[in-house]
């Protein structure tokens, strides 16, 4: 369905200098800065998959999506979607895809929403029957009717997002790209949008690729995630597998009665394990003890009983590691791995 092969993108920009004197210097300078936004990324996506594409800000998510949709041409490598290379045949590819950018609308700002749909019908050459059928379906899943005749600029963010989603789906695209589709929305609206996306995927077997910072989006929608960092792919697989490998860290916060002996307290020596596997921090201001540990190594009750022996416990909070932290951890591991292999390379030479 979609084949991304060794795709890379570099951005070249003139060098900037800070301050007023820098601005003057910049006038005469010709120095360039090359930014490697996406670096040799490959993956394959099958029809009907919902893939979460995640990474921190500036990791290269949007750049990859923009290359897949035909907005940007890759510096090297290529992307083939439905047998079409978007950078060679942009128009043919555009007919097959629907795109929603959470931060900016594709709709006609000053026009009522239904006018936008009328224009899109013409642009995508949707027949009258198809149009009626699609609109009926979109109304069902997105509830567009209630604000259909209001100018887009007067819509709330959630309504606008539903409108944008509907607009992207009017021509029944084979692939739907969603860039931050739930950004800035409240919980109820988020939930509705997710349900709608799921339904569209089930009904029409639409392939969906979405970038997001929202862990809920991923947990509810994606059967597969791809993580990138600094332009490189660092993980590609299911969410369960990811949690299994990296999500074994737990964190417990325990509020205690003030006790000076806790300052020097070390849980690892008490439980007889290495300090890296069980990190204790004591916050003297809130009298809280934070314990981070690996759930495969130690059981939570062991820790609790050990601490209760020591101090007077007032409150306990157990946190499941969230995806954001997992991702952070992967970054660390990957970078350590890179450093490690670099060292080995040097040794070999």
């Amino acid at each position: 369905m979609i084949d991304v092969k060794h795709i890379s993108k570099d951005f070249v920009s003139p060098k900037k200098y800070p301050g007023l004197s820098g601005a003057i210097k910049g006038l005469f300078s010709r120095e360039k800065v090359i930014k490697n936004a996406v670096n040799d990324i490959s993956f394959h996506i099958d029809k009907g998959e919902i893939v979460g594409y995640i990474g921190s800000n500036g990791a290269g998510k949007s750049t990859t999506i923009k290359m897949m949709t035909g907005i940007l041409n890759p510096t090297s490598g290529e992307c083939i979607a439905n047998g079409i290379n978007p950078s060679k045949d942009r128009k043919a590819n555009a007919k097959n895809i629907g795109v929603v950018f959470g931060q900016r609308t594709q709709l006609w700002w000053d026009l009522p929403l239904n006018e936008s749909f009328t224009i899109l019908k013409e642009i995508y050459n949707v027949s009258d029957e198809d149009y009626t059928e699609r609109m009926k379906f979109l109304n069902e899943v997105l509830d567009l009717e209630e604000f259909m005749d209001r100018p887009v600029r007067t819509l709330s963010l959630g309504q606008r997002m539903r409108g944008d989603l509907g607009a992207a789906l009017l021509h029944n695209p084979k692939v739907l790209y969603l860039d931050e589709p739930t950004i800035g929305l409240d919980l109820v609206v988020k939930d509705n949008i997710r349900k709608a996306i799921k339904k569209i995927n089930e009904m029409y077997e639409t392939t969906i690729i979405l970038t997001t910072h929202d862990i809920g989006d991923i947990e509810e929608l994606c059967n597969r995630i791809i993580i990138i960092d600094k332009g490189r792919k660092i993980y590609d697989g299911s969410l369960e597998k990811l949690k299994d490998i990296y999500g074994s860290k737990r964190k417990i916060s325990i509020e205690v009665k003030p006790d000076d002996s806790l300052r020097t307290f070390s849980l690892s020596s008490k439980l007889n394990i290495s300090p890296e596997e069980c990190i204790t921090e004591y916050d003297e201001k809130s009298y809280t003890l934070h314990v981070t540990f690996d759930k495969h190594q130690i059981q939570t009750p062991d820790i609790l009983s050990a601490i209760m022996e020591m101090a007077d416990v007032k409150d306990v909070v157990i946190q499941e590691t969230d995806l954001a932290e997992i991702v952070k951890e992967i970054y660390v591991t990957v970078q350590a791995g890179l450093a490690h292999s670099a060292v080995q390379d040097r040794k070999r030479n």
Binding site: G70, I71, K91, A92, A94, K95, V99, R104, Q106, I123
Partner: peptide, 13 residues
């Protein structure tokens, strides 16, 4: 400001 994206996404000249 990247508004040209919009044109790139539509199947028209």
């Amino acid at each position: 400001n990247g508004d040209f994206d919009r044109y790139m996404l539509r199947p028209m000249n």
